[in-house]
């Protein structure tokens, strides 16, 4: 469904991604692990095209996107949930949820999203700026489910959240996978990642340094720990 070949990307002068190769198949949940600054977030941003400059190849559903305008790429059926969540303060929860345009069939309805994240239903009329961190995270995930995008890029959705909220998010991600969404999950939380992932990629210094199946990850936790330096 998504293939990255020798993907390079820059922030201004600094060369952050130095040839990333990565493959995501339909219906899979793939996790990217790595230390701070390894290039995980940048990989997601480069897939979406929101970088100063990128080179190499990003093929989505058979279509090369490397030269595509950044607002066209999402319309192919990708959606991105940024690490900083970027919930809009000047919009209320419903407006936030309705903001991303519907780009294809198969998205969740507003009601489905509220069922998935009941907290949001209660806060429907509150401003995005008055939500708790967990609610903001739910909103940031929720709003990209409506659009009909089939590939979700989630950047550290559990970062800085209370364990009970992490449980809720994990449960939601599991449900989304059951509903047939393909998911790329960037994580620092190895336990969380290995519990939900089908396959795991490990990044360091802007390249993919290892690749494991869920079974391998379960069998050789030390292999991952060593690479992550934890």
């Amino acid at each position: 469904m998504l293939t990255l070949r020798n993907l390079n990307a820059w922030y201004g002068e600094s060369h952050v991604l130095q040839g990333v190769n990565l493959q995501v198949n339909q219906g899979e949940l793939v996790t990217i692990l790595g230390r701070n600054g390894a290039g995980k977030t940048t990989t997601l941003r480069a897939i979406m095209g929101i970088m100063d400059h990128r080179e190499g190849s990003v093929v989505f559903n058979g279509q090369e996107t490397i030269a595509m305008a950044d607002h066209r790429i999402p319309r192919l059926g990708l959606a991105y949930c940024p690490e900083e969540r970027s919930v809009f303060r000047s919009l209320n929860v419903t407006e936030n949820l309705l903001l991303p345009p519907v780009i294809g069939p198969g998205g969740l309805s507003l009601d489905d999203i509220y069922t998935l994240f009941p907290n949001l239903r209660e806060r429907a009329a509150s401003s995005g700026g008055n939500l708790s961190g967990g609610e903001q995270q739910m909103l940031a995930i929720g709003r990209i489910l409506r659009t009909g995008a089939r590939l979700l890029l989630l950047d550290e959705p559990t970062e800085g959240l209370a364990p009970v909220i992490v449980q809720q998010i994990a449960h939601a991600i599991g449900l989304l996978k059951k509903r047939g969404f393909t998911i790329v999950l960037v994580e620092q939380n190895f336990h969380f990642a290995s519990r939900v992932a089908d396959r795991l990629y490990i990044m360091d210094h802007g390249v993919v340094v290892d690749h494991l199946s869920a079974a391998q990850a379960a069998a050789q936790p030390d292999r991952i720990r060593r690479q992550l330096g934890v």
């Binding site: 979406m48 929101i50 950044d70 607002h71 066209r72 790429i73 999402p74 319309r75 959606a79 991105y80 940024p82 970027s86 809009f88 303060r89 000047s90 919009l91 936030n96 903001l99 991303p100 345009p101 780009i103 990209i144 659009t147």
Partner: peptide, 16 residues
């Protein structure tokens, strides 16, 4: 209003 706050995220939804 959303684009005023964060144009990059709005763009990532496929909005021009």
């Amino acid at each position: 209003r959303a684009a005023t706050e964060n144009p990059v995220t709005v763009k990532s939804f496929g909005i021009n």
